[in-house]
Amino acid sequence: MLRMTLSRTAQAIIMVWAVATALFFLLNAVPGGPVLALTGEFADPDTVARIEERLGLNRPLAERYLSFLGLLASGNLGESYTYAKPALAVTLSHLPATLVLAIPSILMAAAIGLPLGIRAARPGPLSGVIIATALVLFAVPVFWLGHMLRLAPGASTVFPVQGMTDPRGFYQGAAYWRDVSYHAVLPVLTLTMHQMAYTILITRRAIRAQWVRPYVRTGLAKGASVSRVEWRHALPNGAAPIFALFGNRIGWFLSGAILVEVVYAWPGLGQLTLAAIQNRDLPLVISVVVVGVLFTMLGNLLADIAQTASDPRLRSGKAAS
């Protein structure tokens, strides 16, 4: 266990270094520095030079990279140009808003998508309906889905079309969270439908792959009910791709939810990322991507653990890795 923890940690460190390095050089190679976003128009060479000096952009690239590595080693990603605050702190301050959308969407997608996916693995017309719905939801661009949802007759008069809280409210405590959940209804619904489509399709495929295995037939022959076979046998055995999907999607929710955040003007990581890229706020871009990568790795790790815990072969320790 200790060994695994150590190797995972080492892997994470190398990954963060690699991602940060790649971004550092990419961002410094491309045209259009951060100066413009900071001064507006008419910036004369003097002004530009002064800002470049203040941000350290006038030093040789190699020297800047070394000091960047120094910062990275101390867990610091530098100061955001736009906000003049530590980039990591700015990033983390936007994380809760994104989690407010991500966590309920993932949980609801699992709660609805898993049973539907398992059901859709059986033959019959109901499965066809489930699959068709999932396919269409999968194929609808998520920003379009979000926009259409709030134009839908009921939704448009009941739920807010943007924002995380009511600026007129100034709520505290429980009232604040009620306000947030009321604002979150439409964006969470959008993300849930999107994630649910993936869940149904992957689950169905995983379960169907188990249906042809002999043990399923044995189970049925012994008189076990279909749903018991599905849930007790097929699901644990076919769970790997399902866990992998959810692990993978954690990273997606942190970056891919950008579109939904933009549609609903939701003050989360996605909007921050867009602004950081447009403003060429290098430390902030790197910080957002590093956090995204760490969450993806965490998601993958959780998926591995969950899989180990649920897989009867792995659990009993008999299987070779």
Partner: peptide
Amino acid sequence: RFAEFIGVLPRLLVLLLVTTL
């Protein structure tokens, strides 16, 4: 390891970066 590195990159972010820049 390289595949893992590419695999954890947030793809939409990479695309946003590349197309904006």
